[in-house]
Design a protein around this nucleic acid. Structure first.
Lengths: 224, 224
DNA sequence: ATGCCTATACTCCATATTGGAGTAACCATA
DNA sequence: TATGGTTACTCCAATATGGAGTATAGGCAT
């Protein structure tokens, strides 16, 4: 066992810092707490719990329901210290997986219906997650969230999540409206004109002068 | 060699569909074309090129510069057909990695400066990527992008990318303003009040009645 | 009391993926 | 001719993933 902690380790450790959990609970609740900002497989959680325990960063207490054991883990002093040290290290940048966009790229090979279907799916996924975010919002307003004592911090996260999802949802809506007025997905002068117009109005600064050298994009992202 | 294609395979195949590339070019240019919506390691690209070639979905032509060989790959009929079929299959949902948010969760264990530093980093990363997006925008306006003939499609992607980055940037800015007025990161009645007020005004619907059962969040996401 | 279904609580493993190290030729400059 | 950078990859140890498998508990119908 390597004792190099990964971001997944810190995600689990951070969750245990909130209050004690059993591995099973962590697996279930990760969806509410870090799944959407740091996806990790179930088996990864179980593995991390063992590692953290072996390293003395969390400690377990056994409980029994009949013969079935379950261990509830709490964070230790060392664990807190490790989190504190981690807070001083550089962050890995935001990154995403968005398969739908790859499909948009090759959409002209398929049908308009397929593109519309993909976009509707994106919209539906965003709406599902927004529904979930709405529930979390309500939990906080009702004062019943597990991290209620940390509202002032968690509010920052819920804000992020909701802003992002609204952006995705609005984009899908906007694009659907655009695609709906197309007859097909073939290139056309009309579409090209509209596309360029759209690009021209995008809210971002363009570089001062035309680029001679194609400048390097921002450096790559790594997951550790 | 398994011939089950992964999303990374389709990403590469979609890129080769644009125009012929050598593996090295694909690796370099992936940053411009799919890195931000489907991250993949360099070695993964080389591996996929080999697989796709072995499966007859792309075909390579050898070129020489002195003794150094390079192979330029183009998509085949079969390759296009495979992409077409793919367009008819279900999409995997959007997902992201955002380590900074995990740090926000445990921020009270550290200092205000550390939190501010993390948020500034998020902002800087977003601004870097926005600069890159601005360059892409300019390329299209100048008519010199490699996918210029697909502006009407690519405009949809650039729109997404810029909207999302602006959202992230604006969030970081907003949160920095909030955090700046705090004296420390300890819980306080004042902070709790502000947090709840913030949550109350978040742009998302809350469920009609208070939840008795904690409903299940949207289903999980898998990468294939 | 017995069987059956579902939830709890994990372990195990074959396969896939990653980052990085290594190899080697080419090219410009000093 | 040395040397440093770019092109153009290959290879691999370490890690991560999804899914299958194991086993107990509790509720409910018969």
């Amino acid at each position: 066992m390597k004792d190099q902690l990964t971001t997944t380790s810190y995600a689990v450790l951070a969750q245990v810092a909130v209050r004690p959990w059993s591995p099973y609970e962590l697996v279930q609740q990760r969806v509410r707490y870090f799944r959407y900002v740091w996806p990790a497989a179930e088996s990864a959680i179980y593995r991390e719990v063992k590692r953290l325990a072996a390293m003395g960063l969390i400690e377990g207490e056994k409980e029994y329901t009949g013969k079935r054991a379950r261990t509830v883990y709490s964070i230790t002093k060392d664990g807190k210290q490790v989190l504190r040290v981690w807070l001083g290290t550089p962050v890995t940048p935001f990154s995403m997986e968005f398969e739908a966009m790859l499909r948009v790229f090759v959409a002209p090979l398929g049908t308009k219906d397929e593109l519309v279907g993909t976009l509707k799916q994106v919209q539906a996924d965003a709406q599902d997650m927004l529904r979930f975010a709405g529930e979390v919002k309500q939990e906080f307003l009702d004062g019943i969230n597990v991290t209620q004592d940390q509202v002032y911090i968690r509010a920052l996260a819920v804000d992020f999540f909701i802003s992002l999802l609204n952006t995705v949802e609005a984009w899908a809506e906007r694009i659907l409206t655009e695609v709906e007025i197309w007859d097909d997905l073939m290139p056309s002068e009309e579409k090209t004109k509209r596309g360029l117009e759209k690009i021209r109005h995008l809210p971002v600064d363009t570089p001062g002068e035309t680029l001679k050298d194609i400048s390097k994009p921002p450096k790559s992202q790594t997951r550790t």
